[in-house]
Computed example of a mutant assay.
Amino acid sequence: MTVPIPETPRVFIGYEPRERVAVNVLADSFQACSSLPLLIGQVRLDQLGGIYDREHHPKQSTDFSFSRFLVPWLAGYQRWALFIDADMLCLADIAELWALRDERFAVQLVKHQHDCEAGRKFQGMPQTPYGRKNWSSVMLFNCARCRALSPAYVNTATGLELHQFHWLADAEIGELPPEWNVLVGVQPLPPSPKIVHYTLGGPWFDDCLDMPASDRWLAARAAMNHPLESALAVHHEA
């Protein structure tokens, strides 16, 4: 009997040098919760030379503000892929999210109603209000239907054209349950969040240690480091 080959979930995490520890804790949290093998990569500007040449915009707060939209291209416009911001923590099995893929849509996401005022957030980074804010922070891409996101388009489209999904018809944007992108400090934490999003700054920054749900992230970092600490203790005893 031939066993069908399952589609391995592909996860792309936005990389920001100041949030390197957050990227690694997030990746480990996916693996720790997953019942499926995962392929996890990072969207890093230092690996996109000659492809991504967009100038840094004064309103962007991370390196991946716009490069995130290269994920369908990075995936060869084939099958499905998930993009997620670095400043998050996974608390549930990605198999649950992967099972929500719907071929009727080009992209699926949590349709937040995040109204904010212009100002500053973590590390003095700009906080910019706009329609559909945070929709693009977790995106489940049906890559074959996202060919409009070519490197040329991502390099030249305005920020609003990208983040407000002008490259799609509204009917092509599917909705994910809100627990897959819970905005910490913006909305109440539900009883069982699946992905928490430290959009105002997480406890890897000294000025955000008192952010709600910081204990969850700190516990995840400790759990990630525990095997290393055990191995070092054995090494020193030997």
Rank of each mutant, 00 (worst) to 15 (best):
I51D: 00
E175A: 15
R145Y: 01
F165N: 09
G50Y: 09
R54E: 03
V25H: 05
G124W: 07
A81Q: 02
L89I: 11
I84W: 05
L209A: 08
P177A: 14
Y52A: 01
Y77H: 08
N155G: 13
D206M: 08
V21R: 10
K133Q: 01
I94V: 12
V21E: 14
Q108H: 08
K59R: 08
V107C: 12
T2S: 07
C33E: 14
A233H: 06
A223M: 04
C143P: 00
A223P: 02
P193F: 15
R216L: 12
R132G: 02
L36Y: 14
F141T: 07
V23H: 12
D63G: 06
A238Q: 11
L36Q: 15
F69W: 01
R216T: 02
W204N: 11
E179A: 14
L74C: 01
H166V: 09
L48W: 02
P151T: 00
A219Y: 02
G202M: 10
A144N: 02
A81C: 05
Q113P: 02
A233E: 08
V182Q: 07
A169D: 14
Q123N: 14
C116Y: 09
R147N: 03
W180Y: 15
P151S: 15
Q113R: 14
P227K: 12
S230D: 04
W180C: 14
W135V: 03
L89A: 07
F141R: 01
S35G: 14
F69D: 00
Q42E: 14
Q108E: 12
W80K: 04
L200G: 09
A27T: 09
L39I: 10
F12Q: 03
R145N: 05
V182P: 01
D102P: 03
Q113T: 10
S67I: 01
Y153D: 04
Q31R: 15
